[in-house]
């Protein structure tokens, strides 16, 4: 049956600055579709990180704030506490959330702040030129791990979803990817569910999305998709790790 497909209203018309094949763009679309479907654009406030997605505010049509590096969860806490009626989401990369901002995300999740975090894990610092991130894979070459991540020196990649799922406060924690239409559809379901929990005032919600970085991985968009499938997926298993119903 033929389908229609149009740009979500919450997504702006502006061309994105993201590199060709970078799946940030897909994730933006999934968030915007969710906002449209829930009809909440007029009461949504997004929070952009520092990183490739710092310019996310140019690609959404709702109110936005731009965070300092790693601090989006604290800003979201501030907004949600003084204006619980607003729908608040943070959009963060792995350097932003899992490195400098680890304290903020852990405590926001542990307090059960009722906002939603979209956590884009592409295993490097993208904006600054492909440095090693907390999620960089063992042996993965980056501009600051030229011989490959040496787990003896800098430890193993951090599994953020598992780490947050271990907290005792109810939450919705899911890990998804966007490397093919099937996984994109599942990622959309998880993002939609995350926002629904927020709109219902139920719990903190975070969706970790494994995403590509062709430029800094030194791969074509298709090779990057394969690398996520072959290298990241075995280490970062997909699925809903925690739901408030648990």
């Amino acid at each position: 049956m033929a389908k229609t497909f149009t740009k979500p209203r919450s997504l702006s018309d502006q061309y994105t600055h993201y590199c060709p094949g970078c799946t940030h763009g897909v994730i933006h679309r999934l968030v915007a579709e969710t906002i449209d479907e829930l009809g909440v654009m007029e009461r949504t406030v997004g929070i952009a990180p520092v990183g490739c997605a710092v310019l996310a505010y140019n690609y959404f049509n709702c109110d936005f704030q731009e965070a300092a590096h790693g601090r989006a969860p604290a800003m979201a806490t501030g907004i949600k506490r003084v204006r619980p009626d607003l729908v608040v989401f943070t959009y963060q990369g792995d350097g932003d959330l899992a490195s400098i901002g680890m304290g903020e995300i852990v405590h926001a999740a542990n307090r059960g702040e009722k906002f939603t975090t979209i956590f884009v894990n592409n295993a490097v610092y993208g904006m600054t030129g492909g440095q090693m991130a907390p999620t960089t894979m063992p042996g993965q070459r980056t501009t600051t791990s030229p011989a490959g991540r040496d787990v003896q020196q800098v430890g193993m990649p951090i599994k953020v979803a598992e780490l947050l799922a271990a907290l005792q406060t109810p939450a919705f924690i899911s890990r998804q990817t966007v490397i093919d239409p099937k996984s994109i559809r599942k990622a959309k379901q998880a993002i939609r569910r995350a926002f629904e929990y927020q709109v219902a005032g139920r719990c903190f919600s975070l969706v970790e999305v494994l995403s590509t970085c062709p430029t800094n991985w030194g791969k074509t968009p298709l090779e990057a998709v394969d690398w996520v499938r072959d290298t990241m997926l075995p280490y970062y298993p997909l699925g809903d790790l925690k739901t408030p119903e648990d």
Partner: peptide, 20 residues
């Protein structure tokens, strides 16, 4: 083309649309 929209779904730039 069978208008299955898989290309639209995959496109990171929402460059592909299918309209009635």
């Amino acid at each position: 083309c069978v208008r299955c929209a898989l290309c639209c779904t995959m496109c990171p730039d929402v460059a592909i649309t299918i309209t009635e």
